[in-house]
Design a protein around this nucleic acid. Structure first.
Lengths: 217, 217
DNA sequence: ATATAAATTTAGATTTGTCTAAAATTAATA
DNA sequence: TATTAATTTTAGACAAATCTAAATTTATAT
């Protein structure tokens, strides 16, 4: 239906949309998608012709409902594939994104729905991001970042804000993976670094920078 | 490494190679790949430049070892994905080919090897075609077509020659699927149609045309 | 408010893969 | 063998997606 490239543009624009009314800028799309502004302008015109977004020269773009639908379905496919790669094929959470970038473009409604069923209808991907339903509905997370959690409260690591490979590798190395039970047992006033207790057993220290990028519930 | 299209050409040429020395013709490739002869000539030149095949004007083409390797790896990926779709996602054997045509182009050695492991290193796809190993080795089948089997000999349905969707649907409808135990209990001299016994219980009739396209061991 | 900077768009070119129509080559046939 | 038929290749064009460089518009700053 839509090309590989079109889907990537729509996904990028969807993610860059703050819903604050203002259009997504050409440059931000170019940066996100690793291409040049001139290429973005060309593609925007094409997507506008196809009624996937609204475009006013020099004013940026906004997805139409149709455009949002395509973006959300692509995100759904991406995240379901990530679950498969992680749960079934035992890829690390830092490895799944790249492969899912390819798999998300496989065209078959039936395939993704059968895969979803096979995986037991997962609600979140290996980074804690919610998986939209077949009709595009997002059940929102209500996770909080670890740096806002008070001391001595038991929480579960439920997601990350920073999705970069080095960050994910780091967390994995210090046993901070999705589902990990933990408690903040000390907050250093000076730099807001934290001492954590994992599984009620092991103590580790993390910087505020790391804590800010961890989501818990 | 190689594009979607390049892989499809190499796969087509590989399948059209009879190993009788003569080159694969432009027209046969065009027909196989659903394109025009002129397009084939263009692509052939490109693949020749990349040392994936040997090309002499008006004489057809032959894959180099490098070209064969790419073709075989693509076939390997295709067939492993077919097993996944059939075994894990419960797609019918008539449905798996089309989706595997897309999945076979996903680029990741690790992915296919992990998928292979996840599936328990299958040796055949859902149509009974052998799955080449990681190093491209083919263990050959030694299946025979059902129309050559003598009466009262127990055999197992192990593959098909005709891979068309209608044929596969027909077989499925009359309970002839991979692994089915059967015995030829009557061969009609007139039209060489057969009476079969399935699982030692049910009797069915099939035409010689159908029997010729079924492989057993 | 005007000059400069930043962002965006246009114009023209390129790459990949495709096509049609015409030319060239090979094969088939009388 | 000469002629027709079939196959294959070339030439030129096209669509998708990209790029560079130049032109235009919007934003920023003195």
């Amino acid at each position: 239906m839509y090309s590989f490239t079109e889907e990537n543009y729509l996904k990028a624009i969807y993610k860059l949309s703050d819903n604050n009314g203002s259009g997504v800028s050409t440059n931000s799309i170019a940066e996100n998608i690793q291409t040049k502004a001139a290429s973005v302008t060309d593609m925007i015109k094409k997507l506008s012709d196809k009624k996937l977004l609204k475009y006013e020269k020099y004013k940026g773009v906004n997805l139409t409902q149709k455009g949002k639908d395509v973006a959300i379905q692509t995100i759904r496919k991406h995240r379901i594939w990530e679950v498969f790669l992680h749960e079934k094929l035992k890829f690390g959470w830092e490895e799944v994104h790249e492969i899912a970038e390819q798999l998300e473009h496989i065209q078959s409604e039936l395939l993704i729905n059968k895969l979803d069923e096979f995986l037991g209808y997962p609600t979140h991907d290996p980074h804690g991001d919610p998986i939209p339903g077949e009709n595009g509905e997002f059940h929102n997370n209500a996770f909080v970042s670890l740096d806002t959690v008070e001391a001595n409260k038991k929480v579960i690591l439920s997601g990350v804000i920073n999705h970069s490979v080095p960050f994910l590798q780091h967390l994995k190395k210090i046993d901070l993976t999705l589902g990990q039970k933990l408690m903040v047992i000390e907050i250093n006033e000076y730099d807001r670094s934290l001492k954590l207790l994992l599984n009620g057993k092991i103590e580790i220290f993390i910087s505020n920078e790391v804590a800010k990028n961890i989501l818990v519930k």
